[in-house]
């Protein structure tokens, strides 16, 4: 395999792009619901539940709200899905070098931008509907983006500094595979913990599901979406179950290795991160938006800054 247009299309559409990340994301979405159910002493949904939900949504009627900005309302979920698939492809190309496609298309900066694009489409889609609850949710999403972005960029910088001042994901993973993962150092461990909480906020999972608060503003930006468009939003959120842990693994946990016993170790990294996120999700109530800002700016961002200083000093 090489960097021909055909293989690139394969990478975006099949592996590690749309098909792979979509299927794995929907399966992990089931793990999320099942573990949550077990935590609450329930049985939980069957294995194919999220696939059924997605295919069902594809067949429903799409209602386009009369007062909405029509083009934005339709484009927002599509842009969100494609930008998320692009993150999955870029991270995947670096994490699976066995594919043989060299990742010269995007580094960490592109990934940070694409993650922001997802939040911005959520804001645009929510405010395009003209619904009060949707605009409330969009406003909260802006505030949450402001809150978590600073800490997240600082966390990314820790990995950049430790890998010898390079933004290339390949180089970051290679540095870890030769010298051991960054998580083993003090600054790396601190950055991983802060990064995990930032991921939680970026995916709008509890305790940071402030923009989508179902019991309060009924899923916020997604409230007026129905049918296939809602299905695309749900698929995007499912793909984030793949993207976010993969980014964390690439930055701090040394990427994947696919020979011998290393296969189990690679899978374990992914599963531990996912289960940690699910447990944080299930054991914390929703916090207010000012509490979230306080938490990210006054606690996590200084911690990440401290991690950067430690990383520069070599700890």
């Amino acid at each position: 395999m090489s960097n021909t247009p055909g293989w690139l299309a394969f990478a975006v559409l099949v592996f590690p792009g749309l098909l792979f990340s979509g299927v794995v994301g929907l399966v992990i979405g089931w793990v999320d619901r099942k573990v949550s159910a077990r935590v609450q002493y329930r049985v939980g949904p069957p294995f194919f539940q999220n696939f059924n939900d997605f295919f069902k949504l594809l067949g429903k009627e799409t209602i386009i709200v009369q007062n909405s900005v029509r083009s934005l309302f339709i484009l927002a979920p599509l842009i969100a899905l494609s930008s998320t698939v692009l993150i999955a492809t870029l991270v995947g190309l670096s994490l699976f070098p066995q594919l043989g496609i060299t990742n010269r298309y995007g580094d960490l900066i592109v990934i940070m931008y694409l993650m922001m694009i997802f939040s911005i489409t959520l804001i645009l889609g929510g405010s395009a509907t003209g619904n009060v609850y949707s605009s409330l949710g969009a406003g909260r999403e802006i505030k949450l983006l402001l809150a978590d972005e600073l800490a997240f960029i600082l966390v990314c910088l820790v990995a950049v500094i430790k890998a010898g001042y390079t933004f290339k994901l390949d180089a970051i993973i290679a540095a870890q595979q030769s010298n051991g993962m960054f998580f083993n150092s003090v600054s790396g461990a601190m950055a991983t913990i802060v990064g995990l909480l930032c991921m939680q906020a970026k995916m709008a999972l509890p305790p940071f599901h402030i923009p989508e608060a179902e019991t309060e503003i009924v899923e916020g930006p997604l409230m007026e979406y129905s049918g296939p468009l809602l299905g695309f939003w749900k698929l995007t959120q499912a793909i984030f179950w793949v993207v976010m842990p993969f980014v964390l693994i690439a930055l701090f946990l040394g990427g994947f290795k696919w020979q011998g016993i290393e296969i189990l170790w690679s899978l374990l990294k992914y599963i531990v991160i996912v289960v940690l996120m699910i447990l944080i999700k299930n054991t914390n109530p929703r916090i207010r938006i000012d509490t979230a800002l306080h938490f990210f700016w006054k606690i996590l961002a200084p911690l990440a800054l401290l991690a950067i200083i430690l990383a520069v000093l070599g700890a």
Binding site: P46, E214, E219, M223, L230
Partner: peptide
């Protein structure tokens, strides 16, 4: 009822 795939949603659009 989640074991039957039933979910309570907050918006009639869903």
């Amino acid at each position: 009822v989640e074991r039957l795939g039933i979910k309570l949603v907050g918006s009639i659009r869903h």
